[in-house]
Design a binder for these strands. Structure first.
Length: 481
RNA sequence: GGCGGGUUGGCGGAGAGGUUACGCAGCGGAUUGCAAAUCCGUGAAGACCGGUUCGAUUCCGGUACCCGCCUCCA
């Protein structure tokens, strides 16, 4: 069996991964607070975990992995959005969840096995808070329930901080009812116009961190294998989760392995609204950047390094994917072909790809291994390469690869000019057949001027692509001397 | 102030204490009516200073610069 090695934030080392139960490997990823479209940075942990889950399913079996990713649908940001727009919280969260699904689907990220919503686990949260109070780890004060960080000696270990150091450098105003400035809220009172639930401490709502502790325990148990998220969540979110979960379940270990991805930048700078380089996944998709391209760029940088999104990378990524898919189309790939190959027992990803992924999810290494493959052989010969692409999640639908590769006529897009371009190319094909190369080149030059990129294929065929500066008006000049 | 990450060839980006990463661009060649694509080959690196070692870009220490977190942003 392939040994998977992962860098564990908890121990700051790369360690061999050993599941608690190989028949049920359990993972939890902190999902979004649903008040707005997912931005590009939100996609990174999703894709990292998507690859991780694919790897785990490959190694331990498809039915032996349980992947949970939550929706936090109770939060003051949501309340603020509702107040600002006059819409109900329910409308906003429902809409945002649907958007999230669309956008992550477009990136080829498989849906988790469970997508619990915080509002469906209020009972479990209240119960956990009661346990924490009973265990002496939390206290009630002025309608709030707070976690007592001094009651948990390990507090700060995950993020490598000490409570005293943090207090020394703290820049936050401290609520007067806190015993310690670092104590954090488990439950807080709600005004009449705020969402709230009845509790032993009056009508209120949960604090930010408790939902993940409650939902992971409910769906995965108090001890599970891998917990992840962006490095910015390491503190305070994950630190607080550890405190809550370990104190509520002193007998359990909570998450064995903590995985944190580094942040995303855009053209070398932090993505922020003030710099004007902030964009969502949807913005990119609407701009015509395919989800596979976004995925490719994301996976081109190791998850533990800052990743820089640039136009150049997106273009390079698109080029590679086009060439790869083009080669597979020529080798006869389709959904039914892949079925046949799978039944034929030749559907095995390349060892080099699996080994790279097993080595702390070295996705750039896996992609490099794909570059080493010589394409152009038969479908069977290409199977390990194709299976590797699938393992990396680049192929949501084998029947669609032709359209990505932009092969032939009518197989792509709906642009009304396609038929006209195709007709001209048929003329050119005829001109080439009779060796009238002057005319053939003329047609190609005209098409180029209109922004159409033409490629000849062996045997006198061709493919074309409408470039970004395609101008149908120029087509009207075609054929004139 | 505290904590963490980074610094590799023109650009992007990995692994490994000693042997070619890989991709893009460049150069040479094959192929092609010409292009494009593809294929083969090829030059180019490890921020700075010290230490450990037979040998370090890879380990250790220090310096510089960049970035992030400590403010319910993945």
């Amino acid at each position: 069996m392939v040994e998977i090695r992962l860098t564990n934030t908890r121990t700051r080392r790369k360690e061999a991964f050993t599941p608690i139960d190989p028949r049920n490997v359990r993972l939890y990823l902190c999902g979004p607070t649903v008040y707005d479209r997912a931005h590009l940075g939100n996609a990174r942990p999703v894709l990292v975990f998507d690859v991780l889950v694919r790897l785990l399913r490959h190694v331990y079996g498809a039915d032996h992995v349980t992947y949970v990713r939550n929706f936090t649908d109770v939060d003051d940001k949501i309340n603020a959005r509702a107040a600002a727009t006059g819409r109900t919280i329910r409308e906003i969260t429902e809409e945002t969840v649907a958007w999230y699904h669309q956008d992550m689907d477009a990136l080829g990220a498989a849906r988790p096995d469970h997508e619990p919503r915080a509002t469906e686990y209020i009972v479990q949260m209240v119960a956990m808070i009661e346990t924490l109070i009973a265990n002496g780890n939390a206290y009630e004060a002025e309608g709030h329930v707070l976690f007592d960080v001094r009651s948990f000696p390990e507090y700060g270990r995950l993020s490598g901080r000490s409570v005293d150091d943090m207090i020394a450098g703290a820049r936050v105003e401290v609520a007067p009812f806190k015993r310690d400035p670092m104590d954090f809220v488990l439950w807080k009172p709600s005004e009449a116009d705020q969402p709230g639930w009845d509790s032993p401490w009056g009508r209120g709502r949960p604090g930010w961190h408790i939902e993940c502790s409650a939902m992971s325990a409910a769906l995965l148990g108090p001890s599970f294998d891998i917990h992840g998220g962006g490095i910015d969540l390491q503190f305070p979110h994950h630190e607080n989760e550890v405190a809550q979960s370990c104190c509520a379940h002193p007998e359990a270990g909570f998450a064995n392995v903590w995985l944190h991805n580094e942040m995303l930048q855009v053209e070398g700078k932090k993505m922020s609204k003030s710099l004007g380089n902030f964009f969502t996944v949807r913005d990119l998709l609407d701009k015509g950047v395919p989800g596979e391209v976004i995925r490719f760029v994301m996976l081109s940088t190791h998850y533990r390094k800052p990743m820089d999104w640039t136009e150049t990378k997106a273009k390079e990524a698109e080029r590679h994917l086009e060439n790869w898919f083009f080669a597979l189309v020529q080798a006869g790939y389709s959904k039914s072909m892949v079925e046949t190959l799978k039944n034929g027992g030749v559907w095995r990803p390349l060892d080099a790809v699996v080994n790279a992924l097993a080595n702390d999810l070295n996705t750039p290494g896996a992609i490099a291994a794909l570059h080493d493959v010589t394409l152009g052989g038969s479908a069977v010969q290409s199977a390990p390469f194709a299976a590797s692409l699938e393992m990396l999640g680049f192929v949501p639908d084998w029947d669609e690869i032709g359209s990505f590769a932009r092969v032939g006529v009518g197989s792509v897009g709906e642009h009304p000019a396609r038929d006209r371009v195709a007709a001209l190319l048929l003329d050119r094909q005829e001109a080439k057949r009779v060796k009238n190369f002057q005319k053939a080149d003329e047609i190609r030059n005209h098409l180029q001027r209109a922004g159409v990129e033409v490629r000849d294929t062996p045997g006198g065929g061709w493919t074309f692509e409408l470039g970004p500066d395609f101008d149908e008006a120029v087509l009207d000049d075609l054929g004139r001397p």
